[in-house]
Design a protein around this nucleic acid. Structure first.
Ligand SMILES: [Mn+2]
Ligand SMILES: [Mn+2]
Ligand SMILES: [Mn+2]
Ligand SMILES: [Mn+2]
Lengths: 229, 229
DNA sequence: CAATTATCTTAGGCTAGCCTAAATACTTAG
DNA sequence: CTAAGTATTTAGGCTAGCCTAAGATAATTG
C-alpha cells in the first residue's frame, strides 16, 4: 500500500473536535500533545488519532505540526479554528443559560453539538443579544472574535496548599452530576468559599450564607478553580 | 454480490432529510413519491435515492413503505419523525426571526442545519419562550408536539383564476432572493394584496399602502399562497 | 402491440472516520 | 547497553452516504 493520505480534509465536526481537544490538552504552555492523551479524551482508538493527525498535518494550510512519535501542536490555522469553535461553544452555553433558562448542568452537552453548526450570523446575533459577554456560566473566558483570550491566573482546588477563604473562579463544564451538586450547595463562579482539608484528603467547601458544606474527593477537586478572596 | 442492505440506519441527518422531503413532496393527499422527484429535491443521484429508500424500508420499524418502481410513502413512524423535524425547523425559524432578529430571508438555511441537532429540551424552551406559536414567519403552520397539523385551505397564486383582492397566507421559505423582494414591497403573511394579471402572464402584486407594485413571473408565483380577503 | 424513451435499480467504487491486530519505535530498568 | 515494556504507527477492514455506468422495467407512441 502507498501513502494515500494526502486528502483535502476540510472543517468537519470531527476535525473541529480534534482541534479543540489539542487546544485543551496542550494547556497554557502550548505543549505538544500525545496520541494516547487525545485518544482518551476523544474516546477513540489511538490508531484513529494517528490517522487523523496525519490528515490534519497534510492539509493546506496545515492544521497541526506533527512529527511521528513526538506528539502534535496546533498550527496558527489550527489554533484559529480551535478558538473559533471554543468561542461558539461558550457563547452558546451562555445563551442557553441566560436566554433559554437551561439548567447549568445541561448547557455543555447541547453546546457540544451546536457549536459545529451555527453560522457566523448566529454567533454574532447571540453575542449582541448577550451584550458581548466575556465569561460563560462556568466562569470560563470566551475568546474574542479575533481569537484573543487572556490567560487565567487562578489555581486548581486540587493543588491547594492549605485551608483558607477563596473566590470560585470557574467550575468544569464536563461533569454534569458535579455541577448539580455544586449548584445545590450554592457554589458557582464568584461564590466566596471557606475551604478546609479533611484528614482523609477530602476538600470541605462551604459557601458564605449556605447551610450545608460539601465534601469533594481529590479526584474531582480539579474541576474547581479558585483565586484568593 | 448479495442483498447486504439490511442495516440499522438510525436517525441521521441524511435520513431526516429524506423523510422531510417525502413529507413535502407527497402533499396533503399523501401520494406516493418517485425516486427522481426525491433525487431532484435532495440534489443527489437517483441511484442514491433507491439505495436509501431500501434502507428506510427495511429499518425496524420501517420508516417508509416502498415497492420497486412504484414510489414511496411515509410509514406512521416515518411520518412521526418527519413532523418532528418539521416542527424543529419551523420553531427555529420563528425563534431566529423573533428573538435573534434574523432577516427573514436568512432563517431557512440556518434552520435547515440546526433542526437535526437540537435536543428536546431546546425545542421545549424556545417553544415556551415564543409562547407556543402556531405559525412560522413565512406563515407556515408549526406541527404540534403530538404531530397534529391542520390542513392549509389556501391556494397558490399560480393557480389564480382572475384578478382580485386577497390576503397573503404564506410565502415559500426556500428562495431567499424572492423573500427579500417581497419584503421590500411590504408583502408578508397577513398582507392585503391587489392582484392583477398582466398580458404577458405575469402577476402584478400591490400591497395596501405600499408605493410600488411587484411583478412576478408565473414560475415563481407558486411561492406565494393566498386566501380571499 | 412492438419499439423507443424515460424511469428506476443494480453493480461496483470512493471518502471520511472509525475499528482491531500486528509491527515498530521509543523508554527505562537491570 | 540490552531487553522488556510502553507508546505509536501501519495494515487491513467496516459502515454510511454518496457517485457513475450499465442493466432492467415501465410508459408512451406510431
Ligand atoms: Mn462546555
Ligand atoms: Mn464564528
Ligand atoms: Mn424553512
Ligand atoms: Mn422534538
Amino acid at each position: 500500500m502507498m501513502a494515500s493520505n494526502r486528502q483535502v480534509n476540510s472543517n468537519t465536526e470531527s476535525v473541529d473536535n480534534y482541534l479543540k481537544a489539542i487546544l485543551a490538552l496542550s494547556g497554557p504552555e502550548e505543549q505538544s500533545v500525545s496520541s494516547t492523551a487525545l485518544a482518551r479524551r476523544l474516546g477513540v482508538a489511538p490508531a484513529s488519532v494517528t490517522n487523523m493527525l496525519q490528515k490534519l498535518a497534510s492539509a493546506r494550510p496545515p492544521n497541526v505540526e506533527y512529527e511521528k512519535h513526538r506528539g502534535v501542536r496546533l498550527s496558527p490555522e489550527g489554533k484559529r479554528r480551535a478558538l473559533e469553535v471554543l468561542r461558539h461553544h461558550r457563547l452558546i452555553e451562555t445563551f442557553l443559560y441566560e436566554i433559554l433558562d437551561f439548567p447549568i448542568e445541561e448547557v455543555h452537552d447541547e453546546a457540544e453539538r451546536l457549536e459545529h453548526f451555527i453560522s457566523e450570523r448566529f454567533e454574532e446575533r447571540i453575542a449582541a443579544k448577550l451584550g458581548h459577554p466575556k465569561f460563560d456560566p462556568h466562569g470560563h473566558c470566551i475568546p474574542a472574535m479575533n481569537g484573543r483570550m487572556p490567560k487565567q491566573r487562578s489555581k486548581s482546588l486540587a493543588n491547594l496548599d492549605g485551608d483558607g477563604d477563596f473566590v470560585v473562579e470557574s467550575v468544569s463544564d464536563r461533569d454534569s452530576a458535579l455541577l448539580k451538586q455544586l449548584k445545590a450547595h450554592g457554589i458557582a463562579p464568584g461564590s466566596r468559599l471557606r475551604v478546609t482539608k479533611s484528614p482523609q484528603e477530602e476538600f470541605i467547601l462551604k459557601a458564605t450564607r449556605q447551610p450545608k458544606s460539601l465534601r469533594l474527593a481529590l479526584s474531582v477537586a480539579s474541576a474547581v478553580r479558585i483565586r484568593s478572596s
